[in-house]
Design a protein around this nucleic acid. Structure first.
Length: 571
DNA sequence: GCCGTTTTCGGCCCGACTGTTTTCAGTCG
């Protein structure tokens, strides 16, 4: 799959062109192409083979040629030539906050600064003084920016971002001046990682809100403080932006502030075609305010149905909704979930007993929970021997007699060994009501080997769900590579579900694969992999992935009532 | 560089904040 590689090259071309001061629309064309390629659920080489590159928005004749060139020769000549004109380090300067293409170009041309180290040295030697347009304050900002880059400022997980946002929201909503408040940005779109936190406030007294915002105890640095918009950096080095508007603009501002950027651009283009203008204050005909109080209102004037934040990526959703095809897509919601299909108890490496897990699950409104403790080969995680299993089964039977309207399912998370075999014999496997299978070792095998392992597991008639199918652990381990289309094809044939693992560092499958699975008519299971009752709540993160993957209730097996679930999963 | 029920050429989203300017370019989202 070369999608990400090609997207990266196009993005880099855009950056080089930016520094060279090329036509801004040409630059944007490359950026847009890069983004659209990243958002593809299919392998770009399949588009090429079937002569469908033109179907990808933003890919015209020229870029299609470049994609062909890369696919056949592994390089793009125009890109290599372009790269010679600007040293790689100069591109890296763009990562420094407050340094954009113009500044980078200036520094390179005037002072021969080729990377961040050069820049620091030049500042230390007072070389920047006297360059046109650069004075004390700019230098100070650049130094701050360098410090941030050095810290390795990365994107947060969705869960971390949620916590930071909660602190700010709960502090601000206490103010009597704050009439309404909402998070926005990629946090509201529930992206799996988030760069900064965006908060939107309705108030008649923006100055007061701004002042409170920038003086909250969490704040370390004020990056900008204006009448209606401010940015701060927290003590944990997270950037938080806050914007204040009037009530009549709340919907328009929420759309604008939620993004994505490309989604906003597309909306504004649609507005222009209708002789309208959209900005964060509302939707206008000439100077006349038409709407803005709610998002629904603004969409309506544009002739669009409401589009859920998770879909707003300009990834086909606008075109579909213009055709009226999106309304039929009812995104799955947390309340649709009837049970958790991947959990652990003290029988293996979990922190709570089966009874405690069951009661907590019932407290969340579920009607069942599968206790899927590890299998015998995973000794480090307290995998269960056949003798243990008997006792565990007895315990579950006993608990089920005491719980009304709730059921504990006898489950297991089995290991897929390096050949794709499962580590319990069939006569044991057939007893389980829910069998989740996963790869826990041998991640370094080839793509073909790893794919074959998963295919074999799917073919096992006792395996219901493949857990965390790509094995990634955010910040620790990259996904291993598998032939996903092949896995999806076999999963469908064998009636095997793929899991969206909701564990905060996993979120595996990711949103794009989830969407691809839906396209291929493969069923999904959202499981938390909870090792303690608290972790059952991470279902909402799995839900974020599912919604970004365009899933409806029908696509997810644990929206079914227990009898129907057990009927559906049998092979 | 892309794209077209207003166009195959001439458009391409829109505004806040900062710093260094004295009317605005650069950066950001």
């Amino acid at each position: 799959m070369k999608n990400l590689e090609i997207a990266q090259i196009f993005r880099e071309i855009a950056q080089i062109l930016e520094i060279k001061g090329d036509n801004p629309f040409r630059i944007r064309a490359y950026e847009r192409a890069a983004q659209n390629i990243e958002g593809l659920t299919e392998d770009i080489e399949d588009y090429l083979k079937e002569d469908r590159l033109g179907e990808i928005p933003g890919i015209g004749k020229d870029l299609a040629e470049k994609i062909k060139e890369f696919t056949s020769s592994g390089k793009i000549k125009a890109y290599l030539d372009l790269k010679k004109s600007v040293p790689a380090g100069v591109l890296a300067l763009l990562n420094i906050p407050s340094v954009g293409p113009k500044t980078a170009k200036l520094l390179y041309e005037k002072l021969k600064i080729k990377n961040a180290e050069d820049l620091e040295k030049a500042i230390a030697r007072n070389k920047l003084q006297g360059i046109f347009g650069i004075k004390e304050k700019t230098i100070e900002n650049i130094l701050k920016g360098i410090a941030i880059v050095k810290k390795g400022q990365e994107r947060m997980t969705l869960a971390q971002a949620g916590q930071v946002a909660d602190e700010f929201v709960s502090a601000l909503e206490k103010l009597p001046e704050v009439k309404k408040i909402s998070t926005a940005g990629s946090l509201r779109r529930e992206k799996e990682t988030v760069r900064d936190i965006d908060i939107l406030v309705i108030s008649d007294q923006p100055k007061k809100v701004m002042h409170t915002f920038v003086t909250l105890p969490e704040v370390k640095d004020i990056l900008a403080e204006g009448e209606t918009k401010s940015s701060v950096r927290t003590k944990l080095d997270v950037q938080v932006d806050c914007r204040v508007v009037e009530a009549k603009s709340f919907g328009a501002a929420l759309i604008y502030f939620t993004g994505s950027k490309n989604f906003n651009i597309k909306l504004r283009q649609i507005a222009i075609k209708k002789g309208l203008k959209v900005n964060e204050y509302g939707i206008f005909r000439k100077e006349k305010f038409l709407a803005g109080r709610s998002e629904e209102e603004v969409f309506k004037v544009l002739g669009l149905p409401y589009i859920e934040p998770e879909l707003r990526e300009d990834n086909g959703e606008i075109e579909l909704s213009l055709k009226g095809k999106l309304p039929r897509l009812h995104l799955i919601e947390l309340k649709d979930i009837k049970g958790d299909l991947h959990t652990h108890s003290t029988w293996s490496d979990g922190g709570n007993s089966i009874k405690e897990m069951a009661e907590a699950a019932r407290g969340l409104g579920y009607s069942y929970i599968a206790i899927t403790d590890h299998s015998q080969s995973l000794k480090v995680a307290g995998g269960l021997t056949p003798a243990d299993l008997k006792k565990k089964k007895q315990e579950i039977d006993k608990i089920n007699k005491t719980l009304k309207g709730f059921r504990v399912l006898y489950g297991t998370e089995v290991d897929i060994d390096s050949d794709g075999k499962i580590d319990y014999p069939d006569d044991i496997l057939k007893e389980f009501e829910i069998t989740v299978a996963a790869i826990h070792s041998g991640f370094k095998q080839s793509k073909a080997q790893l794919t074959r392992r998963i295919l074999r597991a799917c073919a096992n008639k006792y395996v219901h769900i493949i857990a965390h199918p790509t094995g990634r652990l955010w910040g620790t381990r990259e996904s291993y590579e598998i032939d996903m289309d092949e896995v999806l094809r076999v999963a469908r044939e064998t009636n095997t579900s793929l899991e969206i693992n909701a564990f905060p560092q996993r979120l595996d499958l990711n949103d794009l694969y989830a969407r691809r699975a839906k396209e291929m008519a493969v069923k999904l299971a959202i499981g938390t992999d909870a090792h303690a009752i608290e972790q059952l709540k991470t279902m909402k993160l799995g839900m974020a992935v599912a919604r970004r993957g365009w899933l409806s209730r029908e696509d997810v097996i644990n929206t079914l009532a227990v009898e129907e679930l057990l009927r559906t999963i049998k092979k």
